[in-house]
């Protein structure tokens, strides 16, 4: 009798556990545990037939089917350019500040993080077409694109204008970056680019090479890095915004930033 009462009182606890978890895999394990306890209850209530069926179907089969079902939906697809410091390949691995933020977010949602590299101007298109969930890779808050959702800025940055002419040409200030950043860097080293506007992370990465032919001017205004979210994923956008503000409030973001940009 006592055993039965204990098991019965465990049921709502397990149900609440399964309902309150964010990670889908944990929810499924909670549900499996729930049916296991439930079958023990059936057994104690002298219904062994029902108990056997409950174990076979709910605890084993259904749990398994749910796990397969979340496998495909359980991915967070990120499209990004490769930017040193923010998101870059390091041997076989991908690291960087944005990678840390994104993998933390994916872990919280119980999703597997998949990163695909795309040139920066193709990132919004990929998001609009539903090929990816999140766009990253040093995207500036100033970007004037209403077709995708934007998060709040997570890191302040600055814009630098580089030009070979001594006098900055007002028309060329708008010339933004296109293509893969690694290609751009090679073109810079070959001296093919005459003028360009770059953000801080790209500028720092470039400044390792020789920038003496260029005059560098810092643009006025406050800029920061943001993430882009696919327009169809309003709920994901909401979750990501609140995740970023949680990260900022807990001071975790500062710690991560210091690790990559000390």
């Amino acid at each position: 009798m006592i055993v039965l009462l204990v098991l019965l009182s465990l049921l709502p606890v397990l149900a609440a556990f399964a309902l309150s978890r964010r990670r889908r895999f944990t929810v499924i394990v909670g549900m499996g545990l729930f049916s296991l306890i439930l079958s023990a209850v059936y057994l104690l209530l002298h219904a062994p037939d029902v108990a056997v069926t409950e174990v076979a179907i709910n605890a084993a089969l259904i749990t398994f089917i749910y796990i397969i079902a979340i496998r495909k939906t359980g991915k967070l697809v990120v499209v990004s350019d490769e930017i040193p410091g923010l998101l870059y390949r390091e041997g076989q691995q991908i690291s960087g500040l944005e990678k840390e933020i994104l993998s933390g977010f994916a872990r919280q949602l119980g999703l597997e993080l998949v990163i695909r590299f795309l040139p920066v101007e193709q990132v919004p298109t990929a998001l609009q077409q539903g090929e990816a969930d999140i766009g990253a890779g040093g995207i500036i808050s100033e970007i004037d694109d209403n077709t995708v959702l934007k998060t709040q800025g997570y890191l302040p940055t600055a814009l630098y204008h580089l030009s070979k002419q001594t006098k900055p040409h007002p028309k060329q200030e708008q010339s933004t970056v296109t293509g893969f950043f690694s290609d751009l860097r090679e073109e810079f080293q070959a001296g093919k680019i005459s003028a360009c506007t770059l953000d801080l992370a790209r500028f720092v990465a470039l400044s390792r090479s020789d920038l003496s032919p260029y005059t560098v001017r810092r643009l006025d205004g406050l800029f920061s890095y943001v993430f882009l979210v696919a327009p169809a994923q309003e709920q994901l956008h909401h979750q990501f915004v609140s995740y970023l503000s949680e990260l900022e409030e807990s001071g975790e973001l500062d710690k991560l930033t210091r690790r990559y940009f000390s």
Binding site: P48, D49, A51, V52, T53, A56, I57, A60, L61, F64
Partner: peptide, 25 residues
């Protein structure tokens, strides 16, 4: 066993079939 002994002890075709299917799984 569960399938064939359903008339003697707890079990029966439904649970026995699922258990055998889970073995295949």
């Amino acid at each position: 066993y569960l399938t064939l002994s359903g008339h003697l002890s707890p079990g029966g075709g439904f649970s026995g079939g699922v258990v055998a299917g889970t073995a295949l799984l």
